Simulated assay, not measured.
Amino acid sequence: MCRTVSELDAAVSECRACPRLVAWREEVARTKRAAFRDETYWGRPVPGFGPADARLLIVGLAPAAHGGNRTGRMFTGDRSGDVLYAAMYAAGLANQPTAVHRDDGLRLLGARVTAPVHCAPPDNKPLPEERDRCRHWLDTELALLAPTLRAIVVLGGFGWQALLPVLDTAGWTIPRPRPKFAHGARITLSPKDSDRNPIELFGCYHVSQQNTFTGRLTPAMLETVLRQAKSAADSDPA
């Protein structure tokens, strides 16, 4: 059992539970993309990124083959991360707007970024059983963040569907019928016990190139959700 977030991050990076994902991430790390042929790829599961006392959690899908799987940090070194961290910087959640590699000086301010699947999947599509096998990491992460956590932004429907049952297990009441994912959705989750705080849950389109290149998700739309979530995270529960 991981007792701290740093222990969790170290344990995640050593996981080999999903044979298909292990084979894919390591094959990508060997063959590389031509633009990165001189780099050494991470090629392992990518842990969450951000402080252990974060008040805001951002949940994506999985690392990108030539982004997180290359750099070893969530949303780092790809165009999705370019959009996300620029918006986080604009919202006061990061100390700089760029994320190039793990030693670039980026710090998240009161926020942490994670995913329900920690290995890069083929075609960016984890299988349901891979999502379920990876779930215990997210269970642990939420339990460790619970004392300070006040708000969560979920990027995309995959993360939304993966996160809701984890939140239920971790001590928050999920409304019935179960809330559907939508950009701009906002739901207050009540704690089941006194050792949990209410959580404001926000839905946002994923920062995939498919969404950002077509204008389905604009920087302004993303910044609006992040600013709302930051405001909720910074507010003390009533």
Rank of each mutant, 00 (worst) to 15 (best):
D234V: 01
A94C: 00
T76F: 00
V5C: 15
K180P: 06
C15A: 14
P198Y: 10
D103M: 00
P51T: 10
S208F: 08
E14I: 02
G67Y: 02
L61M: 14
E7Q: 15
L108K: 02
A146P: 11
E27I: 00
T71C: 02
P116C: 07
T173L: 11
C119P: 01
V59L: 14
P165A: 09
L144V: 09
A111V: 05
V12A: 04
Q209N: 15
G156V: 07
L163I: 11
A11H: 12
D132H: 05
L93N: 01
Y41Q: 04
L142W: 02
K32G: 01
F36T: 13
T71D: 01
A17G: 11
L142Q: 03
T214Y: 04
L93P: 02
L84M: 09
S208K: 12
Y205V: 01
P198S: 13
L93A: 00
F49H: 08
P47N: 08
P19M: 11
L142E: 06
C119A: 10
R44K: 14
R135D: 06
K192F: 05
R33C: 09
A17E: 15
R73D: 03
N211W: 07
A34P: 00
Q96S: 02
S194K: 12
D103S: 08
N211K: 05
A65G: 03
L93W: 03
F181T: 14
V166D: 04
L56C: 04
V166S: 12
L21C: 12
T224E: 13
N197V: 08
E7C: 13
R16D: 13
E223Q: 13
R55A: 15
A233F: 11
R44A: 07
G105T: 05
P219K: 03
L201K: 10
P219Q: 03
L155Q: 14
V59F: 05
P198Q: 13
A115L: 05
T188P: 00
S190P: 01
I58M: 01
H66V: 05
A52S: 15
N95H: 07
S6R: 15
T173Y: 00
P165Q: 10
A229P: 03
W172T: 01
A64H: 15
H101V: 00
L217S: 04
M88R: 08
P237A: 08
G92E: 01
A64N: 14
L164T: 03
R25A: 12
V5Y: 13
D104P: 07
A29R: 08
T31E: 06
C18S: 10
D139V: 10
Q228M: 11
P219T: 02
F36Q: 12
Y205G: 06
R131M: 11
S231P: 01
G77L: 04
I152V: 15
G105W: 01
M88D: 07
M74A: 14
G50K: 05
P191V: 05
D195F: 09
N124L: 06
V28G: 02
E129C: 13
V117I: 12
V154S: 06
F202K: 09
L167A: 10
E39Q: 13
T98M: 04
P97Q: 06
N211P: 05
L201H: 10
R227C: 13
L144H: 11
K32A: 00
G157R: 13
P116E: 02
A10W: 12
A52F: 02
L84G: 09
Q209C: 13
R79S: 12
E26I: 08
D139E: 15
G156I: 04
